[in-house]
Design a protein around this nucleic acid. Structure first.
Lengths: 359, 359
DNA sequence: CTGAAAGCGCTTACAG
DNA sequence: CTGAAAGCGCTTACAG
């Protein structure tokens, strides 16, 4: 390696042409005479010249970087899907010559503050938002400050439909997923199919719940489905408690809002009779845990979601256009595995952890 | 928000001072007279001025960015630990005013090519390497090309000790972890403690194996430990097969190179008698899966590893100094949970997946 | 088709 | 203590 990085200037001097000509060879080759073009191109290759990002950025006022917050690893089971999303995002962004500027934030206010700083420093051209919540403050802020962005997750609002949102979003049709698995269970002869839900709200949880409701309403005249629903937080122990309620009410299958909840439901089966243990459980996200334990689930098309997010954001950075909304379909994955038995899960929630000091 | 970003120039003009004075207020305030300083500082705040990253970068030839490859999510169980590492890295890098430039790569050659391009474009100042392998080509390349870096993971060499490495590294003392859990099992009265290993090599797998060996050699005169070791790939199904061999040889406890293997070992217990099912299994990494299933494990101090990696790299970028090597101690986590029973795992490895098409 | 020039916004060496 | 100037490496508008 030489003493210094090559620049347009140094290459031009070396070749006895102007800076502009070197630039033309790289960016508008058709405009340069053949012999010059070949001579310059060869020198560029030999020198391993790559345009300085800073120089370009200063001139064009574009950083070619996309801001993305790495969400806290709150769960590790369902959280895995976001890690996969970020991985795919990095891959596809690179192909479009964009970089991912990764950061961590303690909460939404901190996240917004980071966007503000990064924008002020001209450090990012746009943002990919994940894990949208009801009346998401981040969306409001980004819109208000004209920051180009795409959200992976619909802009959940209590009274406004996501289809009217003034910004791009990509999401997975959770309702279609839970509806498909519920219909499948109905077709298999189940009629009392329980649903293990996060607290009902008009967000991703409400969406998944709605799919189960659609299938159930379709299948029976029974209007009151409420006894078949149990609520819990996204926690294995709490899910086990809620699943027990459902089993007590005689459900013969359980559809869950997440794989974490499905794991809790498995645990609840443990204490039951052999018959009860055959109750099929379906999770959501098709995480490594579901795969390893043979739990049925609903797989999100995460690679397509990432690819679509990048392409929407990149096109928005290139040109004005109306907002686009993309709803992708998930794929149910049924696994025929035997059902959990008591002892494995018996102690979940009362696990005693002891740390022993290292020698 | 005004029409344009404020700059040193625009602020200076507005305030009737020179660009230099504004800069001094921000970077060497002691040199500016009190009244000027206050007036300027107030204007800077009001305008929300943040120095342009590109301008600074062009002038200083420093990007203040750290390159990091997001590893493929090959496993999702033990892979989780790297996601956590990257998350913490982002957090600590930000505190030192560094950005994480994230990228994906298909393999090591691709990873190296990406470093080369990013360096040529002056896009990154340094690199954090993860998942080091034997005679790691990436390390050789980075050293040869004078790219500042720190590796999370020792530079494994067949014939050279990591302590002589000419570069910074941070690692977790895997051997100390497996040794501690093995000693604990010995203290609990176990003598035939099996070890479920990745193929033995002088790398992270060999390191973890060595800890178990130390404890076992110490505890008995029996020189030949080979019948207590079974090898397998990092895969639940293969681990189950290997664990069965160990059980057939009468082991009363199993220490594993990873939580993924521990999950396989759990599965192997399933088909055994009630007695056999009490065989304690210990994994490695204390992943969400281990926590959810109540499997004992060894927790890596991942937050400290990330913080140390950032501080080593940042200090290296600031000044010449001899290489530093940091070996952190992991913490065994014992969980008293009952042991796996047959049916849950019976079908692992022969799981039938069926996708049903969405409506 | 080729070249000379301006300017993006910083930091730094230097003059007053 | 304050200010005028140079230059990092690009891209782009313009002159020949």
């Amino acid at each position: 390696m030489g003493a210094r990085r090559p620049t347009l200037e140094s290459l031009a001097t070396e070749l006895g042409v102007s800076r502009q000509t070197v630039w033309n060879v790289l960016n508008r080759p058709s405009v340069v005479a053949e012999p010059t073009r070949e001579r310059v191109a060869a020198a560029v290759d030999a020198a391993g010249y790559v345009p300085s990002r800073a120089g370009r950025q200063l001139r064009t006022q574009r950083s070619h970087a996309i801001g993305i917050r790495l969400m806290p690893t709150f769960d590790g089971i369902n959280g895995h899907i976001l890690d996969t999303f970020v991985h795919e995002l990095a891959e596809h962004a690179h192909r479009s010559d964009y970089r991912l500027a990764l950061f961590a934030a303690a909460n939404e206010a901190d996240e917004i503050a980071t966007y503000a700083r990064m924008r002020a420093a001209n450090e990012i051209d746009g943002v990919v938002l994940t894990s949208t919540t009801i009346d998401d403050e981040r969306i409001a802020w980004l819109l208000e400050n004209d920051v180009p962005f795409v959200s992976f997750g619909r802009p959940w609002r209590r009274d406004v439909d996501a289809s009217t949102a003034p910004h791009d979003w990509v999401d997975v049709d959770g309702a279609a997923g839970t509806e498909a698995v519920t219909r499948r269970l109905l077709a298999d002869g189940h009629s009392r199919i329980g649903y293990l839900s996060w607290p009902a709200q008009p967000d991703v949880g409400g969406d998944r719940l709605a799919g189960w409701q659609r299938a159930m309403r379709d299948a029976s005249d029974e209007r009151d489905l409420s006894t078949l629903i149990a609520e819990c937080s996204n926690d294995v122990t709490d899910a086990r408690r809620a699943a027990r309620q459902l089993l007590d009410r005689g459900v013969t299958a359980v559809v869950c809002a997440s794989d974490t909840l499905a794991l809790g439901a498995r645990a609840a089966l443990g204490a039951r009779s052999a018959d009860a243990r055959r109750v099929p459980i379906v999770g959501f996200d098709d995480t490594p845990v579901a795969r390893a334990l043979g739990i049925s689930s609903v797989a999100q098309p995460i690679v397509r979601a990432a690819r679509t997010s990048v392409s929407l954001l990149v096109s928005r950075l290139a040109e004005e256009r109306p907002p686009e909304h993309v709803l992708l379909s998930p794929s149910p994955v049924f696994r025929d595995s035997e059902i959990a038995t008591p002892s494995l899960f018996e102690s979940v929630g009362t696990i005693q952890e002891k740390e022993i000091t290292n020698p």
